[in-house]
Design a protein around this nucleic acid. Structure first.
Lengths: 230, 230
DNA sequence: TCAAAAAAGAGAGCACTGCTCTTGCATTGG
DNA sequence: CCAATGCAAGAGCAGTGCTCTCTTTTTTGA
């Protein structure tokens, strides 16, 4: 992994991360719409055309930033989970949800980049799917743990969804019962609905005590996937 | 309302809506990022500077489109509700949710404009708050109706949220019990989490039977706000 | 009624953008 | 050691949002 492989190659990856770092700063400051390759190049003391040796287009730079943002969020979720690893599953669930919210409020423009309209086109690029799954993986792990300890309530699923729920459980969340897989997926999307509404100002004039509100909503989400509070 | 007030004023509003219509077409075709004032002006056979007599900036045009999109979505929700006005509240709830989803899938770029990152800045402009509330108003109406018929289950709210929940009920959803106001707000955000994940491709590789999945999730949302299926 | 005021369009121009192409220099591997 | 490759620089193209000036048209008020 840490093969030096020549000064040139090392310089290349160094410059590439420098470009991403400066781009991330502009993104955090002004948002994706105002991120300009030329401005990034200017601050790095190079000419704009040189930048195309590292990223073939602006969208590619943005995609790289998207992946990094997913990873940063995923790391925050994993760290929050590790910090309460001994608590009951329901508590851990809420802690992870709060970590997601905290990260989003701290990095609104990056959050917008990944869960607002994913800029290249309107749909997320294919390559972003694995890093996007990290938060979900943490939540799935909590549920799997609760299931193995027999601490998961299960609400049945309508007959039409039975095959799909089995497929979801088999292919993307092995170790979870089908009904739970469906509930988990819905809760996953709903979590980001709550976070997104707060970050994008949709709660303006509606919710004032957002911290308490979110905690309660996250607990209700936990309840919805079958977790019980001790 | 229909005061002609001079040919000039009429022409003015006509041109303004022509601009918005053309802009909406470009938005639907290419997305907000590629919407260009000059291209709109070109198609309308006028010079770009003339357009600034109608919209002082690109962001103002976008804000106008945002408001129109909220209204279009709100209308779709209201129409769907009207079509099942005699059904049980829980059925009406699901129907409205499905109408929101249907509109979003039919107008992905417009959906991205209003519930993805609201483009001017990253947070929604203040003037968009009232039209944004139309969908919520329909849902609140369903709950109020159910409550008056004594068909609403109520789950208690933690003590810390009690004052806030009373304030929410008083100020933004009069006629609903405080606990329901909290649950309603959460369900509102969660609904758009579900819809947004589908529109933006986050369910790619995870959910296949999206229609059934959404119907079930919407029903669970109804359950969460206290609606019961007959 | 008729001149003054207001509104609208046209065109040029500024500073900026993403991106391409060619040219010269440095580093690398055979 | 030298050819091949990688990289940066610079010029340039087509496009953008927006401003300013100038002319024409319409509305208004004494």
């Amino acid at each position: 992994m840490t093969t030096p492989q020549g000064a040139r190659a090392r310089a290349r990856t160094e410059i590439a991360t420098a470009i991403k770092d400066e781009a991330r700063r502009q993104l955090a400051a002004e948002g994706a719409a105002k991120l300009s390759l030329r401005a990034v190049a200017r601050r790095l003391g190079m000419v704009s055309s040189a930048l195309y040796r590292y990223f073939p287009s602006r969208d590619d730079l943005l995609t790289a930033l998207i992946i990094d943002a997913y990873d940063s969020l995923g790391e925050a979720a994993e760290a929050a989970h590790a910090a309460v690893a001994d608590a009951a599953p329901a508590r851990r669930w809420v802690a992870v949800c709060e970590a997601v919210r905290g990260w989003a409020l701290a990095h609104p423009h990056e959050y917008a980049l990944i869960y607002g309209s994913p800029v290249p086109g309107y749909s997320a690029p294919e390559t972003t799917i694995p890093p996007a799954a990290r938060v979900a993986m943490v939540l799935i792990g909590i549920l799997r743990d609760a299931f193995e300890r027999r601490g998961l309530a299960r609400t049945p699923v309508p007959a039409e969804l039975a095959p799909e729920s089995r497929r979801m459980a088999d292919e993307v969340m092995p170790g979870l019962p089908p009904e739970v897989a469906v509930a988990m997926t819905a809760a996953w999307a709903q979590l980001f609905g709550l976070v997104g509404f707060e970050v994008f100002g949709q709660f303006k004039g509606v919710v004032e005590e957002r911290e308490w509100f979110f905690r309660h909503a996250a607990a209700q989400l936990a309840h919805g996937v079958g977790l019980v509070f001790p």
